[in-house]
Design a protein around this nucleic acid. Structure first.
Length: 464
RNA sequence: GUCCCUAUCGUCUAGCCUGGCCCGGGACACCGGCCUUUCACGCCGGCGACGGGGGUUCGAAUCCCCCUGGGGACGCCA
């Protein structure tokens, strides 16, 4: 047991994406490893952009990935009183002030500064105003002038130092009175006793000013660990044009959560030459020490490989349950066909996603086999009639569709027809499955069972 | 533009801290072969990197500096 307290704090302005999921994973893993607490906090201070749907989508994705939180979810929108109180505290202490500059004025100044090659920061117009008219205003945090720079040691990036001349007086409350991110994140992390903040390194630049806020509010500054970003193949920030970025989209595409977790953890973290990790492995082995410092490129191929690995080695009973919705989506009724678990077993090593498995499984469930045009033309020709007749009568005689019995039956067929196994198997495969690619023919026969198999052979016979 | 971060195969990375065992290891992808009743799986093999330039040192992927590349931040978004 330790007192480690970490958190994942997504803003509900969309679904949970790949990068967020990895941040959540790192937090979760560390909490579990240390026997600490993993807290979930929804950062919805931007009322205009936050939606209930996004919250639900994020919660659902967290659940799918298996990241259960120990505390929360907490909603910042429930805590505005606390924030208001803290703003007042800063105001009273003279550590914050009202700023009456309009957004338009600020934009103009920013643009001008950029054009002149200066850093676009607030010029402090309202900093020393003595009057406080009752006009629309924001609240700004007064950058402390008692130090020239702020330095902290990041658990991943190392020592980070920023000179205060690079900073300005940031807005902590909007014109409408609502608090902004940099303020609330500090208040909540402090009030929730978070002692290690793990987040994307796009927050690295915010950290010094947040540290200043911690100090101004009299809070203990936590430790920080900034995880590198995830990029697309073109080294640009990962976005929709690189393919799906929503975690749940991968579930829909037939990915298993353990594959996603395994892929995500290896993107930026390593443990010698190991590639495959269960959640239990990760809780034992994961650590910030082996997290890389540079951005990584999202590689869908490797995710796919891991997915096929987990499908191959997965429990058929569980996979069968997972397969059902994918089958139903293709209008296949999983109840009307052979044993689903046997179906899964026959497809595990040749499926890379559950969607693919569903595609491969469909033929088992159809009432009437639909032949692929080419396959039919090549393997279901009139001259095959004697072969199929043989097949029908011998298989009819076969007492049980077991590997052993089927082998015996085929030995007989091979002898009487003087055909090699391949010459028999392929036409039969087409008759049974409609195509030329399928699991082993003995397996197909067994899974389908005697009755279905014979019906399909007779169906083929009728077309010759 | 300014600041911050970063830099090993196409990609994820091991190695770097504690220089020599690394003319650099693993994985994905790719190519070839084997296996084989189809498609796959699997197995074997191959291709392929220390960004560039200066130092330090007997010796550098490993330490230092510069350059270049990449990412991020600069918002009344988070």
């Amino acid at each position: 047991m330790s007192d480690l307290r970490v958190r994942f704090a997504p803003s509900p302005t969309g679904y949970l994406h790949i990068g967020g999921a990895r941040t959540a994973l790192f937090n979760y893993l560390l909490a579990k490893k240390a026997g600490g607490k993993f807290i979930l906090r929804i950062e919805d201070t931007d009322v205009a952009r936050s939606t209930r749907e996004s919250v639900d989508a994020i919660l659902k994705a967290m659940d799918w990935l298996g990241f259960a939180c120990d505390e929360g979810p907490f909603y910042q929108s429930d805590r505005f009183d606390l924030y208001r109180q803290k703003v007042a505290q800063l105001l009273e202490a003279g550590k914050a002030y009202r700023c009456y500059c309009t957004a338009e004025e600020l934009d103009a100044k920013r643009e001008a500064a950029m054009k002149e090659g200066r850093k676009p920061k607030y010029d402090g117009t309202c900093r020393n105003r003595s009057d406080q008219p009752d006009a629309p205003h924001v609240i700004r945090f007064k950058l402390p002038e008692d130090r020239l720079e702020t330095t902290f040691v990041d658990k991943i990036k190392g020592t980070i130092s920023v000179r205060h001349e690079e900073l300005d007086d940031l807005i902590i409350a909007r014109t409408d009175g609502t608090p902004t991110y940099n303020l609330v994140v500090v208040i909540d992390d402090a009030e929730m006793a978070i002692n290690l903040v793990i987040r994307g390194d796009d927050h690295l630049n915010n950290t010094p000013r947040q540290i200043l806020l911690y100090e101004a509010l009299g809070y203990t500054v936590p430790e920080f660990a900034h995880v590198p970003m995830i990029l697309g193949a073109d080294k640009k920030r990962l976005s929709k044009r690189h393919g799906a970025t929503s975690v749940m989209a991968y579930r829909e595409m037939g990915y298993l959560p353990e594959a996603m977790v395994n892929y995500l953890v290896r993107l930026g973290w390593s443990c010698g030459d190991e590639e495959v990790f269960s959640m239990a492995d990760l809780i034992e082995k994961f650590g910030l020490d082996n997290v890389g410092r540079s951005a990584g490129v999202f590689n869908p191929d490797k995710l796919l490989w891991l997915n096929s690995h987990y499908i191959k080695t997965g429990d058929p009973v569980r996979l069968a349950a997972l397969l059902k919705p994918f089958l139903q989506q293709k209008s296949v009724d999983p109840e009307k066909g052979p044993d689903l678990i046997a179906v899964v077993k026959s497809l595990q090593e040749r499926s890379t996603t559950m969607v693919e498995m569903a595609e491969g499984a469909t033929f088992y469930f159809v009432d009437e086999v639909a032949y692929e045009e080419k396959a039919q033309a090549k393997f279901l020709k009139p001259e095959q009639k004697p072969l199929f007749e043989q097949l029908a009568s011998e298989l009819e005689k076969c007492p049980q569709f077991t590997e052993e019995q089927l082998e015996k039956t085929f030995a007989v067929i091979m002898e009487t027809t003087e055909l090699k196994f391949g010459k028999i198997a392929q036409p039969l495969r087409v008759a049974l499955t409609g195509g030329t690619a399928s699991p082993s023919i003995y397996v197909v026969l067994q899974v389908l069972g005697k009755e279905r198999s014979l019906r399909r052979i007779r169906q083929a016979l009728a077309t010759l």
